[in-house]
Design a protein around this nucleic acid. Structure first.
Lengths: 146, 146
DNA sequence: CTAACTGCAAAGTGTTTGCACTCTT
DNA sequence: AAGAGTGCAAACACTTTGCAGTTAG
């Protein structure tokens, strides 16, 4: 999944996931995988439109959602629909439930220090860091495997 | 800053930051600090409205922004305005520029493993973790201190 | 043929803005 | 008095939805 998959494997992928192989879906998928970085829906749309001028933004959104639901892509920072503010002044990290989106603070002392083994690329100056531990909270774990 | 500050200290805080001490601001601030967890603007608004029924949501937003700009609170997950998707299948972490919001991937091998020193609270089951290193990219560093 | 998918436009969210009015300083 | 802050409504940006028409299986 590291480089652009062949048309063949996309067909297989869709079969495996029970998805229809439409032209739009195929182009969106390949465009997405050819883009590096962290593309936005708009960004994907702009590029796809060059190949399929009639495509609609809604289709791009729908497909991104589908891909995400099937684990083919991932949203970079899981955002709750609205902004969330942090008042806690003491340094801490987060446990985030992938199911119910609950956020639980973990004091920084409870997490070992992280080390960067290489120099940060391109002169990036790190001010602070923050660990997000993703998983399932007690409640959700129960509901998944009762 | 861990528990609700006294009215006195809020006045001082405002003075220190050159902010006017308005009733609304004071109530928003104290409400915010009395809430645990990771309140949303709406959530703050709902509570503040009980004390100041005439307050507007816009005022809450403006104050949250002001507080954030002065470092009194922090947004939990810095979200770019639109969603960002990740295609990169190999495990990695992120460098995030606080100024231009650029995201740079850092291979997981370049970051030492993190250890939880205590048991996760309330049966949380961690599936994976993700380190966000926040700072300033080379470009922005130059522009801040030329 | 049926279910899945697309395109369109309209409706939703969450957030920001412009402006007149009102308070702090 | 001047500048900062407030409330309102309108504007915004991003995302979702309903639906009729199209396409894949």
């Amino acid at each position: 999944m590291q480089h652009t998959p062949s048309p063949e494997s996309f067909r297989e992928l869709c079969e495996r996931h029970g998805l229809a192989v439409t032209h739009q879906r195929q182009v969106i998928f390949h465009t997405l995988f050819a883009m590096h970085g962290h593309p936005s829906p708009e960004g994907v749309y702009e590029l796809v439109k060059e190949l399929i001028p009639s495509i609609s933004l809604a289709t791009v959104y729908k497909n991104l959602k589908t891909f995400e639901e099937h684990g083919l892509i991932r949203e970079v920072s899981l955002h709750h629909r609205s902004a969330r503010f942090e008042i806690n002044a003491s340094p801490h990290h987060h446990l985030v439930c992938l199911r119910c989106k609950a956020i639980v603070d973990v004091p920084a002392e409870d997490v070992g220090p992280i080390q960067l083994k290489k120099r940060t690329p391109s002169g990036f100056r790190v001010k602070r860091y923050h660990v997000e531990m993703l998983g399932f909270c007690g409640e959700c774990t129960k509901q998944i495997e009762p």
